[in-house]
Design a binder for these strands. Structure first.
Lengths: 334, 334
DNA sequence: ATCGATGCATGCAACGTTGCAATACTCATG
DNA sequence: CATGAGTATTGCAACGTTGCATGCATCGAT
């Protein structure tokens, strides 16, 4: 069934090593020999055994991608870009879903936890910066969207504080004064929500607006259902907001849904800004204003980081902190 | 750095084989010996080398998932379920994006094309049934959502004809008479669109409604943009429809978007039914009526098929055609 | 007391590949 | 004609694991 170098060698009347040379191009092979070998390869339908190659080379050509949930549009869009970009670099991608479970994230970061992969891109939710900094993964690591002050791994993320500030300022610029924020996540340790809250408050401060604790709504997950619920809470609260900054597009779409259910006009009665620029937001009714991180760049630079470290293991460059550009895309919810 | 059985053996003062027995449980080991070995394993942080294991065993513990596009909600939701289900069976999932490219799909199906994987789940777009039937993959194969009359691989799909019939009949039952269909894909060979068209026409026939060629709109991809464009064409056409059956939720959401842009009321002026039951449809304005395939079952049964063939390679059971249940979920666009 | 069964531990070989070092051959150069 | 440089090919060993066969005790049954 599956043929080996040995079979091809026998058929072509050359040594195993020569066949290997033809296949891998490691050493020069005479034109005529190469032709004969190639013929034998084609006839037998030979394909190299990757397990053996990996064992020899200590590399697998596989990188791991660990994200909380694949079904979430932001992550699936990003995963799609990463998979394409990986293919461009001749890697394939092994996907792990952590579901924001600390144990699952921890397991991946222990030496040998990633197992077959040459490198790992992880978007941590449950682990706090201290634990991340202490991690001793056995392969190069890239952290996505993570605050990670003095970490041991490269990090790729947008400037969350500035982005949140811009989103909030955008609302302020439109004359809104009672601006709520949906998306703080006290139970998670990854810091993203904290940073966005920081930006939100900074914008309020600059405009001289007061902080209203009731206007900061926390959520369990970043799903539409959570956004819808938070919006319900806001509208049932004592002071009703005239604008909402949601920390993800999914939350924003959930909030938009609730607004519609209750007969509120968007943006007239209440304006909404999201974060992530997922495809759904472009076709919602009305289309969603949002902060758009450059996902293509996140994918490219993450893989660049991995490549740098995988291909030169001696590389002891200190961990990089890469900030990817973002822009505010104003659509019709503001 | 990374320790091997040999290192553990040396530290524990036993043979390599004994350590292997402790790790794999292949043969009985005395309690005291096991303790010593385990201690050495913990101290050295030993983890088995999967490449070596695979080489020996001829298995990798990895299955491939080949889908057209990861960013599409239907596929990302399905992929998420498959990844979880695979983990439950101690497999990890290697993801390939074909982008509906015939060459990419073909490569995966040639022997050795899948490479490291023990099995492959593929959702074909570009290849026609004949080519699929002729494929000689080197590992067990499961086809998703594919018409595949006398194929060589297990197949898992919903009953597309019946489902489309039900969706259309639902619209007819609401009194609609000028029902358009968005989503035929003449350039693709995978048959899904043909089956849904068949069901759509069958329902029209049963109700004694005429077929209007202008009401069958073809699209390049199943994205929102395509649905929006098709809806524009419909509304600009000679006879305007009072209902639309879209072959995917994304198309439906695009159509809904256009309807709103043009000031049409949904469902009063025009009703819309989608297909896939993606999360976005539950929170659109208004929430989308749709055909909901049981994705969880698709994931479970696909992996069951793979498991059956991977774990008993001698198994020559003829290919199974598994039909997964679906149901019509009526929300507010109808 | 003998034998077979059982429990535990071990060494050897092999999975398919590639790095390394060695060899054989050709050819230009002094 | 000897030398060295370059090209083409080869055999051996090793990557880390597990299947198989074997060895040595111990134990219960006859």
């Amino acid at each position: 069934m599956s043929s080996r170098l040995k079979d091809v060698a026998a058929r072509a009347g050359v040594s195993v090593r020569t066949v290997s040379n033809v296949v891998s191009g490691a050493a020069p092979v005479a034109v005529e020999t190469r032709r004969r070998v190639q013929e034998a390869i084609d006839e037998l339908g030979y394909h190299p055994n990757l397990a053996a190659r990996s064992l020899r080379a200590g590399r697998t050509g596989i990188i791991g991608l660990a994200i909380p949930e694949l079904h979430s549009p932001y992550f699936s869009e990003l995963a799609g870009l990463l998979v394409d970009e990986a293919r461009r670099r001749s890697w394939t991608v092994l996907i792990d879903q952590t579901h924001g479970d600390a144990e699952a994230e921890r397991r991946l970061l222990t030496p040998g936890g990633g197992r077959v992969v040459d490198g790992l891109i992880i978007s941590p939710w449950a682990l706090d910066p201290a634990e991340l900094a202490a991690a001793q993964p056995s392969v190069p690591l890239v952290l996505l969207g993570e605050r990670h002050p003095n970490g041991a791994a490269d990090r790729v993320a947008v400037d969350n504080v500035t982005a949140a500030d811009e989103a909030t300022s955008h609302l302020i610029g439109l004359g809104r004064r009672r601006i709520a924020a949906i998306g703080t996540q006290p139970h998670l340790r990854n810091g993203t929500a904290q940073l966005r809250t920081e930006g939100y408050l900074r914008a309020l401060d600059r405009a001289g607006l007061l902080h209203d604790q009731d206007f900061q709504r926390s959520v369990r997950a970043l799903h539409r259902a959570d956004g819808a619920r938070a919006m319900d809470e806001l509208l049932d609260g004592p002071a009703s907001p005239d604008a909402v900054f949601a920390f993800s597009d999914e939350l924003a779409l959930g909030a938009l849904h609730t607004a519609h259910q209750r007969g509120l006009r968007v943006p007239e009665d209440i304006a909404i800004v999201g974060f992530d620029d997922i495809e759904d937001g472009r076709y919602s009714n009305p289309p969603l204003t949002t902060v758009s991180p450059d996902k293509q760049q996140i994918a490219e630079r993450s893989l660049q980081c991995l490549a740098d470290r995988i291909y030169s293991p001696a590389n002891t460059t200190p961990p990089q902190e890469i900030t990817v550009p973002h822009r505010l895309v104003a659509r019709s919810t503001t």
